[in-house]
């Protein structure tokens, strides 16, 4: 996190509003989520749930619908303040939404009246280098030259690429993705998965990915959490200790995918 001030002797008049925080370590993870309880009415969805992430780490959440995956993402993002517990980013308690966390939704959710470039640079605290940053991001997601298009002129895959670029615009420490590729066709999905794994490597951003796709989880993550519908149960955790870049055809990956499917089935059976 090179953008954060590490120097404790920093001048008092610094314009950086972020308080100085030491770099993330295993004892002090980049993202530290502890949801003691989250309920919708009488139904408890999450109970004593913990999630810790280091910089550059990718954790996937899989599980049947209604097990609280998306709810958890919304809590981390600060979109759902109605829970008991805490979310710490870089060691600091976080209330409400923050520019340190980027969010990519299932649908692109682009503002239809803004050009692609203006969608990416929607951040109200537009930095001076906004235009250049947009160009860099467009290049990175493979859409160079399309900055002046309107969202209606994009295909589904292109729109989701723009959404990813928008999520990265603020240099977030954490990127949350809620089934980001579930609405695009199979070929586009493969390309977007490849794009995401490149982005994680380049930006060293911590990623929480909610998905239904066990192959996607195995391909992209360092760890996979399998959630079930019993809020009290701790999620089953499967480490994916495969070297990168990973090949889809890899036998070890296929074995892990199978293991994930079994775990998912076991969670369903409860």
């Amino acid at each position: 996190m090179s953008s954060l001030p590490h120097n404790t002797h920093q001048v008092e008049t610094s314009f950086d509003t972020r308080p100085a925080a030491p770099a993330a370590t295993p004892e002090r993870p980049l993202l530290d989520v502890h949801v003691r309880r989250k309920a919708f009415g009488q139904r408890t969805v999450l109970n004593d749930f913990r999630l810790r992430l280091q910089a550059g780490e990718v954790v996937s959440l899989i599980g049947s619908s209604g097990c609280g995956k998306s709810t958890l993402l919304r809590i981390i993002a600060g979109l759902d303040p109605d829970y008991e517990g805490s979310v710490r980013v870089n060691g600091l308690d976080r209330w409400g939404t923050t520019r340190d966390i980027g969010f990519v939704f299932q649908e692109p959710r682009l503002f239809p009246w803004l050009s692609v470039a203006d969608n990416i640079a929607f951040d109200p605290e537009r930095p001076n280098d906004a235009r250049q940053r947009v160009e860099t991001l467009l290049q990175e997601v493979g859409l160079q030259g399309l900055g002046q298009r309107l969202p209606k002129q994009l295909s589904g895959g292109q729109a989701q690429r723009v959404a990813i670029a928008r999520g990265l615009f603020t240099h977030p420490l954490v990127l949350l993705l809620d089934e980001p590729f579930s609405a695009v066709d199979a070929l586009t999905r493969l390309k977007l998965q490849e794009l995401l794994s490149n982005i994680v490597r380049e930006h060293r951003v911590a990623v929480v990915l909610v998905t239904h796709d066990v192959e996607e989880a195995a391909l992209l993550s360092d760890r996979v959490l399998v959630l079930d519908n019993q809020a009290g149960n701790a999620p089953r955790e499967l480490p994916i200790a495969l070297p990168r870049p990973r090949e889809r055809s890899d036998a070890a990956l296929a074995a892990l995918r199978h293991e994930l499917l079994l775990a998912l089935e076991a969670a369903h059976a409860l």
Binding site: A77, G78, L79, G96, T97, T98, R99, I101, F103, F105, E107, R109, F111, W113, F122, D123, P124
Partner: peptide, 25 residues
């Protein structure tokens, strides 16, 4: 509501929310 949620991620002020999201929408 989904667009308003995106705006919330950026902590838009009330006036900015009206001017940049609600009015155009």
């Amino acid at each position: 509501r989904k667009l308003i949620e995106v705006a919330r991620l950026y902590r838009l002020s009330a006036t900015a929310l009206v001017a940049r999201v609600l009015l155009p929408a």
